[in-house]
Design a protein around this nucleic acid. Structure first.
Lengths: 338, 338
DNA sequence: TTGTATGCGTTATCAG
DNA sequence: CTGATAACGCATACAA
């Protein structure tokens, strides 16, 4: 049987309320008693029952982490594990616990969130929102990682993805490339639409027209048929000499596809991508990639959540996490033939 | 303000205890009242406060999912996301919630579990135990996925990995291969030691001696230096003509390494691996791989946990989940030169 | 500075 | 069949 506050009270020869105060370091309690109580608590291995605390305070030390769509799909992307790690780390520091909220099967992520909130278990929700953000009021504070399409209301932490898309494109431009393809665009994922925006901005700034057929989704990498279409693009006379890929996995896929048709990276085609994964690091050629720091994104999101739950008055509405270019071997100057 | 049982009672014109009984479909309550109460509950969008329930029942609807070591490392393996999906699915069916218990940073997974249990939030623990299982009594029921080194006490669900290792090896043997390498052995992970055992059994049954230098860890795939050592093995005159890889990622890495030295899969080297991932499916050549069904593993583990928590008397001590061979293009007959 | 009484939302026991 | 009451473990307003 686990020790309760009464057991500690008895052991320390005081009343339960005194124990409570002592353990909370209330100012109005004598040093002696405080020590005696703490000692007793330690000896009995006393841990306050969170259920009871929650019942009184109407708060819990649990935050729900909401995965969009299938967990297994999202977690396949190395981005999410690091994010989780960051969330977990910060949660530990703030003494919060993480409740996994996943849809999948019949239930939507939104429905699952509702259940988590209704149960009373979670005091807040962190939305891993690559996709869209729900419209109904969840009833608890929300921090979204990524950003809502309308920036209304919610707290969120994100990279500046239009800046990132622009930076990646400019990096290639700086190496003399003018025919640059974008791989991995998907209008369902707002970070890809943001990066596309940045890509178009960068091209526009150089007076280079955007070619729609050079904005590809990720399908060509998974689906041989679509892959053939993309291959055709690279077989054309004025083929792209460089590509911006939405993540390392795509970049690796593209490298393979190109190699299959006799094109080398970076000799024939330069590639810059995002996420700076181990796979990209060990790939040959090692990928030049943007570190967007999901670990930090997670840490910050959780700290923000903790602050919001604590009622910190000046908790920021949104926080931007910087990205960094990690230069490796997948980018070279544009072919002289230009 | 969320509706409480009292609100429902008032709305239905009965006492709180009657509401409780009505909502629990107690037999001793009139049909009329039951309906009236349920109606009122629905109208008020009443959801019983789990904290209060837990306080009296000394149980919660939360199960902790304990990740070994770094979450980000483990989740990198596609095995875990599917597992989580399965756990989540079954949890939903049994109306349980999943608490993410992760070590990382300063705290060990065991320490994190202790905190989760001490807080009183979790009623049970599912251990994702590729590695070792703790020794101290956690204080709540435990189901481990994978199996403890000593099968003492715990409930667990797992594949029969020695059978799997044996099957994979026999599959290659059946194609005429006699020089078979094992890639991805790591004594810290019990499933790899089990599969190695099966591999050795299969070879032994054919009177083929085990060659220690043909049992490789996963390092060669990540680390160029170690990769060179492995390459040397394949450059030798009596090089392996086939390999069993602990997972698809390793198989893909090996394919690349071989291609780099002019060896084709499956023309020169046949490969069978485990996990049947998308990456392996879309790889060229498409990988012959064992589906070990992590999704099902997760489902079953969670159902087992729910049964244990429910006090089901004949909850099995251990459950074995079958694996299936998915034949694709990475295995061919052994070269005729044999 | 410390103790007593009360309530958080729910269920179980006991009356009626 | 239904209602009142106590108790789960803790925090807090109020007394002392």
């Amino acid at each position: 049987m686990k020790a309760t506050i009464k057991d500690v009270a008895r052991a320390a020869g005081v009343s339960p309320s005194t124990v409570s105060r002592a353990l909370h370091d209330s100012p109005r309690i004598s040093e002696k008693v405080r020590e005696r109580v703490k000692q007793a608590a330690k000896e009995l291995d006393f841990h306050p029952n969170q259920m009871a605390k929650s019942l009184v305070s109407r708060k819990t030390r649990i935050v729900g982490i909401v995965f969009p769509g299938d967990v297994s799909k999202s977690l396949g992307n190395p981005f999410y594990p690091s994010l989780l790690q960051g969330l977990g780390r910060a949660a530990g520091e703030r003494r919060y616990h993480l409740l996994l909220v996943t849809g999948g099967g019949e239930v939507s992520a939104e429905e699952a969130s509702r259940q988590a909130v209704d149960s009373g278990y979670v005091s807040g929700l962190v939305l891993l929102a690559a996709e869209d953000v729900p419209t109904r009021d969840p009833g608890v504070p929300v921090v979204v990682i990524g950003h809502p399409r309308d920036e209304a209301g919610w707290h969120y932490v994100d990279n500046d993805n239009v800046a990132a898309g622009r930076a990646a494109t400019r990096h290639l431009l700086a190496h003399g490339h003018r025919r640059i393809l974008l791989l991995g665009y998907d209008r369902r994922y707002i970070f890809t639409v943001d990066r596309r925006l940045g890509y178009e901005q960068a091209l526009g700034e150089e007076g280079i027209p955007v070619r729609r057929e050079w904005i590809a989704t990720s399908r060509p990498i998974r689906d041989p048929e679509a892959g053939e279409e993309l291959a055709a693009v690279f077989r054309a006379g004025d083929r792209p000499t460089a590509a911006v890929c939405m993540d390392d996995a795509l970049a690796i896929g593209l490298t393979g596809l190109l190699k299959g048709m006799g094109l080398e990276v970076p000799g024939d085609v330069s590639i810059v991508s995002f996420n700076n994964t181990d796979a990209g690091k060990y790939h040959i050629p090692a990928l030049t990639s943007y570190e967007i720091d999901p670990y930090r994104l997670g840490m910050i999101a959780m700290h923000l959540m903790a602050d919001v739950l604590k009622g910190v008055a000046d908790a920021p509405r949104s926080i931007e996490v910087p990205f960094t270019l990690i230069e490796r071997d997948s980018v070279a100057g544009a072919p002289a033939s230009e």
